[in-house]
Simulated scan of single mutants.
Amino acid sequence: MTQNIEAQGLLILIVPPSLEESLVDALLQQAEISGFTSSKVNGHGTVRGDAATLSIVEQVTGRQQRVQFMMHANIVDLKNLVSSLKSTFRSTDIHYILMPILEC
């Protein structure tokens, strides 16, 4: 039996709390995704290896507050979404991971 199912992917976005509302608004406008989840998370480490960009509190505690968004959809649609977000949120501290889904 052959299934003609488009490849699905999982997109994870990790953003500073200051971008949360703007990103929620942007994601809600995307017809290609049916929904997404968000949660408060902590980032550990430095920003691109530069500890000077961390606040004193972040340097002492070893963590930064972040918001994580997760969504799954067709991989092609997710790649297009990433391109759009890169353009819209240029020069912001957004980290993303896009990976294939074997089953969902």
Rank of each mutant, 00 (worst) to 15 (best):
S91M: 02
G35W: 10
S84D: 08
I12R: 01
A7M: 04
I56T: 04
G62M: 08
P17T: 14
G43S: 12
Y96F: 15
R63F: 09
R63N: 07
Y96H: 13
T92M: 11
T46V: 09
S38R: 12
E21L: 10
F69T: 03
T53P: 01
K79H: 08
Q30K: 14
L19K: 11
H44Q: 11
S55T: 15
Q65H: 02
T46L: 03
P100Y: 06
F36H: 00
I56N: 11
T37E: 10
D50C: 08
M71N: 00
I12G: 00
S87D: 13
H72A: 12
Q65K: 10
K79N: 15
A73Y: 06
M99S: 14
M99N: 13
V60G: 02
P17V: 04
T46P: 02
S91T: 04
S22T: 10
L102I: 04
F69P: 03
L23G: 01
V41W: 11
L102Y: 11
D25I: 06
M71E: 03
I14W: 02
Q68V: 03
L19C: 09
S38P: 06
F36K: 00
N4G: 04
T92W: 10
Q64D: 05
P16W: 03
K79S: 15
T88F: 10
Q8Y: 09
I33W: 15
I5L: 13
K79G: 09
I101A: 12
V60N: 07
Q64A: 15
S34H: 10
E103W: 08
A26T: 05
I12N: 01
A52G: 03
R90P: 02
L13V: 05
V47S: 04
I56W: 01
G45S: 01
P16C: 06
M70R: 08
A7F: 08
L11N: 00
T92V: 01
E58Y: 06
L13C: 12
Q65E: 14
I56Y: 04
S83M: 06
T61H: 07
T2C: 02
R63P: 02
K79M: 12
Q64L: 05
V76W: 02
G45P: 07
P16M: 05
G9A: 14
V60R: 05
P100E: 05
R48G: 08
Q3G: 09
K40E: 06
S39F: 10
L27F: 12
E32Q: 08
P100T: 11
T46R: 11
